[in-house]
């Protein structure tokens, strides 16, 4: 951890990116993520139809030339819904993890920096949060808050705050013992300046790597909540919600479950591959092996 936290500056981003993309597995992950991102961004142009438009005559039509991936029980075009659904997945997972990184990172950083009893109590609280099954915590939060995109983001970020607090704290415990922190205090730097200018840059990499991996978890959580019926309200297309609809018709229209299932898989796998690759590249111990 010491060496990770204080690895020499800018192990040159370009070198790192190069090493990252030279690993075929990571490259595959980048491609998978790029596909989903492109689909989400270009949904208005790529989607053949309006994702909400219902064609009752064509309901539960199989994949074919008319509807590339078929239609659901209301006759809505599955492909269009998939493309638009990617937006919700990406939006919710990115924003919830971004806020968890900021809030959790701040809690862990400040707690580790202050140390002592405050640190002890804060980390105890984080451990309690950590021990609670995150999916269930998310379910309860959404149920209590009501399901909107904002509440979904709040609920999911809440389930990820504790791990980021832990990740941020560990290197801070090492860094704060280094003489340059004390030098800063002797020079009259405020604690805020020391934290932001001298501590934060040393832990940012760790947070970003874990952020990628946790975004994969957030995609899963969002899809799971939508599948249970606690996600973004219908008719807004979400992958989990599409699985829920498809599951009701699974006996005769299994493809309704397969497409959104594969979409979720592609995004989560892509994020996991990238995160795994980032882990290897940024961890000098793994590099040495």
């Amino acid at each position: 951890m010491t060496d990770v936290a204080l690895s020499e500056p800018r192990s040159s981003w370009r070198v790192m990116a190069g090493r990252l993309l030279s690993d075929p597995v990571t490259l595959a992950g980048v491609i998978l993520c790029a596909i989903v991102l492109a689909g989400a961004l270009l949904a208005p142009w790529l989607a053949p139809r309006d994702p909400l438009e219902q064609n009752i005559i064509d309901r539960l039509a199989g994949p074919g030339s008319e509807y590339l991936l078929g239609t659901d029980q209301f006759g809505r075009d599955v492909l269009s819904r998939l493309l638009w659904g990617a937006r919700i997945s990406l939006l919710v997972s990115f924003l919830s993890i971004a806020s968890a990184v900021v809030v959790g990172g701040a809690i862990g950083m400040v707690s580790g920096y202050i140390g002592g009893r405050f640190d002890l109590v804060t980390m105890q609280v984080m451990d309690v949060l950590l021990s609670f099954p995150s999916l269930i915590l998310g379910m309860i939060m959404v149920a209590l808050l009501g399901s909107s995109v904002t509440n979904l983001i709040i609920a999911i970020s809440l389930t990820a705050i504790a791990p980021f607090a832990r990740i941020a704290r560990a290197p801070v415990l090492v860094i704060k013992e280094r003489a340059f922190i004390e030098a800063g205090r002797a020079l009259g730097f405020s604690h805020l300046r020391i934290l932001l200018v001298h501590v934060l840059p040393n832990i940012v990499t760790d947070l970003l790597v874990m952020g990628t991996l946790w975004m994969a978890t957030a995609v899963r959580t969002e899809a799971s909540l939508s599948f249970i019926g606690l996600g973004v309200k219908p008719p807004t297309p979400t992958w989990g919600g599409m699985m829920r609809d498809g599951f009701e018709n699974i006996l005769d229209s299994a493809w309704l479950c397969i497409w959104p299932g594969l979409a979720i898989l592609v995004l989560v796998l892509g994020l996991n591959l990238v995160g795994d690759g980032l882990c290897d590249v940024t961890d000098p111990k793994a590099n040495a092996q």
Partner: peptide
């Protein structure tokens, strides 16, 4: 394996 939400792998 890590990437499958269990409801997806279960349904599959």
């Amino acid at each position: 394996g890590l990437s499958f939400p269990v409801f997806v792998s279960g349904i599959f």
